[in-house]
């Protein structure tokens, strides 16, 4: 069993209204030194497979096809053993 842990985030050039608002909230709460906040998504996909290469290929295809929108988002993922 392999598990993919996928992070989808807005591209650096794209403004992030949620991140900007969170930054203001953190500052209002007294947290200092926050340079920037960016929000994203975390997606976990479990596979009934131990073929790491095949799983990697599949996850990459999933990210390109549906899990991220390449116009505004970027993705990265890691594959680990177990659930």
């Amino acid at each position: 069993m392999l598990t993919a842990e996928i992070h989808v985030t807005l591209k650096d050039l794209v403004l992030d209204p949620q991140g900007t608002t969170l930054k203001r909230s953190l500052e209002a709460l007294g947290f200092t030194g926050v340079a920037e906040v960016r929000m994203g998504k975390y997606i976990q996909v479990r596979f009934d497979s131990d073929d790491r290469k095949a799983v990697e290929r599949q996850v990459d295809e999933m990210c390109q096809k549906i899990l991220s929108n390449p116009v505004i988002e970027q993705y990265r993922f890691t594959i680990r053993e177990g659930q």
């Binding site: 794209v14 209204p17 949620q18 608002t21 116009v71 505004i72």
Partner: peptide, 17 residues
């Protein structure tokens, strides 16, 4: 239409959330 690629670009959350 944007997601399907029939039109270019994408939507972000409104500026004021």
């Amino acid at each position: 239409l944007l997601e399907s690629g029939l039109l270019p670009g994408a939507m972000l959350v409104n500026r004021g959330l």
